[in-house]
Design a protein around this nucleic acid. Sequence first.
DNA 1: CGAACCATTGAAACCGGTCAATGCGTGTGG
DNA 2: CCACACGCATTGACCGGTTTCAATGGTTCG
Lengths: 249, 249
Amino acid sequence: MSIRPVAGAASPPPAMTRLSRLAALAEADLAALRAAEADGKVVRARREILAEGQEITETRLLLAGWAARVRLLPDGRRQFLNFLLPGDLVGCCGHSRPLAVATVTALTDVTLATAPPGAGSAALREAYAVSRAMEEAHLLAQVVRLGRLNAQDRIGDLLLELDERLRLAGLAGPDGFELPITQETLADALGLTSVHINRMLQLMRRDGGVVWRQGRVRLPDPAGLALRIGRAPVRVTASAPATAAAPAG
Amino acid sequence: MSIRPVAGAASPPPAMTRLSRLAALAEADLAALRAAEADGKVVRARREILAEGQEITETRLLLAGWAARVRLLPDGRRQFLNFLLPGDLVGCCGHSRPLAVATVTALTDVTLATAPPGAGSAALREAYAVSRAMEEAHLLAQVVRLGRLNAQDRIGDLLLELDERLRLAGLAGPDGFELPITQETLADALGLTSVHINRMLQLMRRDGGVVWRQGRVRLPDPAGLALRIGRAPVRVTASAPATAAAPAG
DNA sequence: CGAACCATTGAAACCGGTCAATGCGTGTGG
DNA sequence: CCACACGCATTGACCGGTTTCAATGGTTCG
């Protein structure tokens, strides 16, 4: 007897999980999302999804895998601006003839689909708008990380953010989450070097603050970590709490 | 002999200058902006304009003065997230019941007015959307500054951004622009200490890269500086170039 | 079995932070 | 008119977090 189906279609896919938590979607919206889900296109790891300066023709929805916005400096240095996780939107703008303000690259193999147009559905538009606001809030958090936190706190803060975001998409739980990125990628996201990331991770592992093995991360005491750093969960609307706390944990 | 009128009503106010460069506004839009211009309310320097977590009830337009979004850490450290200049929007969101994701404080005495509602005018909505997109682009630039640039390049890059943005509002020209902030504020924006800002500014003044006297800044060679750092002007739409380059400079 | 990629380690150098003091201009009240 | 406080810029000495450079190991995969 399988309490949870092993592979089947039981729990909704991450993107649907996330978006339906951002706004009260109607059945038509869910149907549109299911259609998108069936229409995913794969981009291989390390490939470009969108190039800086390029005109954006459609909003896309990230169905699976990790991507990131990135800027390259003339001397080859690299800065990841933010991570894009399943359920996140790529190229969602409010104005006409938008240009990509940063390159988007696939960190892992990634599945993308055209996002169902918001034109027909106020709820879908609301979900997209909330998603955009959350992305902005995460950017602000990134600024604080880079500007005012030391290496260990940067790592902790980012892991907390990823935990929070992946939970919203149903991809993280009490047993942690998949973190399919290298230490060098983490370094380029946190404005550090991979050497230093490595050393600080060892310390954090020793202290028991972080468990990261075989591409999977678990934070034994998220609340304590958040308190120490001074991080509050992202909140962009007064309507629904929009958080996906562990059910009665 | 005054080539430019000294005090009068000749050149349009900064906010109108900026917004009318972001989209093709109709006469009705300009009238609405003029009305807003006449309805400004003053917030004194160091006062809070908006508190983090507070529900946003209306979008406001910054008519005069400098403000900034800021985050405070539990230990008292401070990080300015971005500067808000005349013509910028405060609390512009796309979703329902938005919450402020960061505190907004006045850096100088500031004049604010309720932004004319976009409901009636597609052009006004477009201008607001473009403004939002530019703000996001500036946030990305801030992430790169803090993550990958050293102190001198951070200062240079930020001054270039301010120059570009103030030009758009008609507040900067070949003779530079007003920079009504202290070195400590600059430090809290750039993730540095005021002591280090002071030392680096002295070096940059000696090298001739920056002239900053009595609250006024001039960059003798913006293009060269931009090239060295690897900064490109912000571009968010394929429609109008939206830049306010010096006329045939 | 070698190539490629990633994690790990060590030693030395450097950038920026910290602490503390001094200077300097301005406004203000005695 | 002067004394003083206040905010801000400036300076010096020292400390420490992070980078840099370079090398070693481990694992996977063709």
